[in-house]
Amino acid sequence: MESRRKLLIVIAALLAVLIVTPFANSYVIVLVTHALIFAILAMSLDILLGFAGLPSLGQAAYLGMGAYLTAILATRFQFGLDWTFGLVVVLGILIGAATAALFGLFAVHAGGVYFLMITLALGMCVWGLAYRWNSLTGGDNGIVLPTRPEFGIQLADDVTYFFVVFGFFVAALALLTVLVRSPFGRSLVGIRENEPRMRILGYHTWLHKYLAFIIAGGFGGLAGVLWAHAHGLVSPEDVVLATSVDALLMVVLGGPGTLVGGAVGAGIVVFLREYLSTLVPWWQYVLGGVYVLTILYLPGGLMSVPERIRGWRARWENGVRVKFPRHTS
């Protein structure tokens, strides 16, 4: 009953976005498209952070791999500009997963703050490649993509592209929801809460975390493919540390371990970065402020706000202190 209502509400919210966006002005459509792509990246990170308890500081690397793959195939081989776009999506997911499979060998055995540090270093390696491997990546110039794919439908149209990205977003949300509710997903939570116990119970915890890492990389690669075409430009700026850190903020702001929270956080951060900076020259104060305030006052993210409000209300009405659950991060 409970979970069916949740599902209905999420569906209602998705429908609202789906129906309203095409009628908004074209800039809003672009913003929402960007937000949805980053929502996929944020949800992929939430698998690691919210469920497996692995805070990755290098998630932009997979986005970068997917995006550069798309751009290189499109400009060098004119590949992926018709129905083969579907193949590029698959390849993008594979390259994200493959990169994660490689990086995971370095990173997954480390815990906590070492994991942060190692993923940061690996992310930097990908940036270094993008920045200096001129002949392949165009270096600092990046790669400008040709017109978006066309196969019966024209993705060059912003509304059409929004629908496509929306479709991928819903698919990603559905797949990831199934994943976290599966025995595998529960084992991840178990590892997050108490890894030694899970090991005693006979789980191969390293393997579970490694698989989660690869899956997250795959979804990151998907976001990269979509990002490359959304933007028409792939540049080393897409793989900088700031992108990875922003992805973390999206998850933490929305609420780790909720999937949907990452999407909400993505919407807010994309809006702040892209739109707020056009309104005020001192937008970095706002961005910095959001970081600091989220960390200090929203430990469970936005998804925990209603609970907190209820907690306060209960306390107010009953004079009883209600302890609200703290989301682990």
């Binding site: 942060l116 903020l249 970095q284 104060y285 910095g288 970081y291 960390i295 991060s329």
Partner: peptide, 21 residues
């Protein structure tokens, strides 16, 4: 914040932006 690597790192990022501006 106590010992919480993730939130601490994000807090320092926030400060990096504030200091820069």
């Amino acid at each position: 914040l106590g010992f919480d690597p993730l939130r601490q790192v994000l807090l320092t990022v926030g400060f990096a932006y504030l200091f820069q501006q």
